[in-house]
């Protein structure tokens, strides 16, 4: 079993985004790396109807001690990884606390109500102000733009995993990522995913 310490036990992460952004895959990759290191990991997620353009959330609980609830109690998350910025804001309303950290992609996906002109979407400055006020630390990165350059916008999810690694709260590195991914991918796809991971890591280091 592992000996490395977690900043908190259980350490609770919310990975959030919009259906179709690869939320589920990101949470599974992250969790698989940590299970291999000997931690108890619980992922709570729902899929089905929520995939169709709705908000999606995965709750990940990491512990040296036992399995924890697939739903994080209110105010008890330590890290939010958001594939879409207003989803980070939505998560803070329930799971936020002054010590929380937020890592978010900047690329908006407009809710149907915004497209229809019934609701408004915050600009980047408004998003920054909210995150500044409700987190201990936050990072906004242009993951989708970089992923499009790599050839596929979906790779933003892997980029966010790379950036999560750079935050340093969780005990995994590039090799763990390669190890976990090599069970499901091979060849070209593997190369692209490693690139995305590295790019995500470096975006945070800038």
């Amino acid at each position: 079993m592992t000996t490395s310490k977690l900043p908190k036990d259980p350490y609770s992460i919310v990975i959030t985004g919009v259906g179709g952004q690869g939320n589920v895959m990101a949470s599974r990759v992250l969790a698989n790396m940590l299970v291999k290191k000997g931690y108890y990991v619980t992922i709570g997620e729902t899929f089905g109807a929520s995939q169709r353009g709705g908000s999606v959330m995965s709750h990940i609980r990491v512990s040296n001690l036992s399995a924890w609830s697939p739903q994080i109690p209110a105010g008890k998350a330590h890290l939010v990884v958001a594939l879409e910025p207003i989803e980070a804001i939505r998560v803070l309303a329930r799971y936020g606390n002054p010590d929380i950290k937020v890592l978010s992609n900047l690329r908006p996906i407009y809710p149907a109500g915004v497209i229809a002109g019934e609701a408004s979407y915050p600009n980047e400055q408004e998003i920054r102000t909210i995150l500044e006020k409700h987190t201990s630390k936050y990072w906004l990165i242009k993951a989708t733009e970089e992923a499009v350059k790599l050839g596929n916008p979906i790779l933003a999810n892997v980029m966010m995993v790379g950036a999560t690694c750079a935050i340093g709260d969780l005990p995994f590195d590039r090799n763990d990522f390669i190890d976990a991914m090599s069970q499901v991918l091979s060849g070209d796809k593997m190369e692209t995913n490693i690139k995305a991971f590295e790019l995500g890591f470096s975006l945070l280091m800038k």
Partner: peptide, 16 residues
Amino acid sequence: SAKLSAFVHAPARDQV
């Protein structure tokens, strides 16, 4: 404050 921010700036996502 966090709830107000979400109410104003995170419009609900209707399933589509």
